[in-house]
Design a protein around this nucleic acid. Sequence first.
DNA 1: ACCTGAACACCGTTCAAGT
DNA 2: ACCTGAACACCGTTCAAGT
Lengths: 218, 218
Amino acid sequence: MSRRGTLTRERVIAAAAAVADRSGLAGVSMRSVGGELGVEGMSLYHHVSSKDALLDALAEWAIAKIDLPPPDAPWREAMETRARSARAVFVAHPWSIAMIESRPAPSAALLTHHDRVLGWLFAAGFTAPLATLAFSTVDAFVYGFALSETNLPFQPNPGAEADFAATVSPDPGAYPNLSRSLTELLSSGDYTYPSEFDNGLTLILDAIQAQLDATRVA
Amino acid sequence: MSRRGTLTRERVIAAAAAVADRSGLAGVSMRSVGGELGVEGMSLYHHVSSKDALLDALAEWAIAKIDLPPPDAPWREAMETRARSARAVFVAHPWSIAMIESRPAPSAALLTHHDRVLGWLFAAGFTAPLATLAFSTVDAFVYGFALSETNLPFQPNPGAEADFAATVSPDPGAYPNLSRSLTELLSSGDYTYPSEFDNGLTLILDAIQAQLDATRVA
DNA sequence: ACCTGAACACCGTTCAAGT
DNA sequence: ACCTGAACACCGTTCAAGT
């Protein structure tokens, strides 16, 4: 990064995100972020009060990148758009997954986010209990899927799935069901693990829709 | 902890888990784990090759605590038992959630775990694609729910929900849907957030069961 | 007002030295 | 064989000093 221009809180946060993308969360130190900006680590304390505050800001930075349809969007489309966007952000910035929910205090950005989601559901006639079920189930699925996805040996490069198969298959005695599953999926041709995201999301949203329809009839 | 007896790999791992339970993952240092055992941090290197190896071992330690029904258990009961047990382990040891899936290499314990789960499903007549959908969806839900649950201001102490309501309610203008939701849920009397776990799990398993029945008929 | 250098109390890890 | 103390290159953070 350049040392052009004066330091701002925004530039500090962006630099921290860049370091995290490149070196992981463990690589984020006050000195390394300073280095990214051509400045000593100690200078950052004029813009963030502590490293913990910087991490809070980083969590907000990631949340803000999630696409959030307008309040009057139809609930199912809105939930799908947000879920896909959240997943894309988590995959692009793997350090953000555990962080968004794990910061001690829920940020204003997170609360705003939650409020918007509940708004779509209430507008569609969800009761509070059903809205909570829909929200917590979809959210848990998205977080959990992204968590698995970014750390499984699938995807990053095209050959990884075959590599994984090679790791497991040699010992079908130890992992018979895992190798059976891999064999069947890979031999069927067009299987890709990432498509499980849409499959799971559809499964959950269909089930929620059925419950919503049931409350309307009743 | 006591300094009785000689150091073993098992005692080192157990001590690390105790430190993590008490001080969080950030509190786990070679020196702090050594201190837990009445020994210098440097002594641990005779039993684990690095701090990273210790963290890998810690991830396996947590996985091993998850209740895994026998291979011939009926699939739905087995999935429920495992999901509830996993959640209990994650809540008891919050540091384990992000860790189990985020260690670079999937451990043998994790692969064995996966293999057992697929075994229940294949025995019940699941196709490989449906088994994968069931597995990845339930798993994502369990991980994601635990991730939210351990970091939301619900639950740890009985008054926390009311505290949270107090934090949000004062400004219904900023979070109208959130306050509406909280008001309706809390006023209805017997609502507790943790019960959303069973609700979400049932929603997902019912949907999977319906798909399984559909493949059987076809 | 903003940045810095030195300092403090910590890290993970290596290694020669003790028993 | 197992444990230790000193040492190295790092941390986050404070603070007096520079501009």
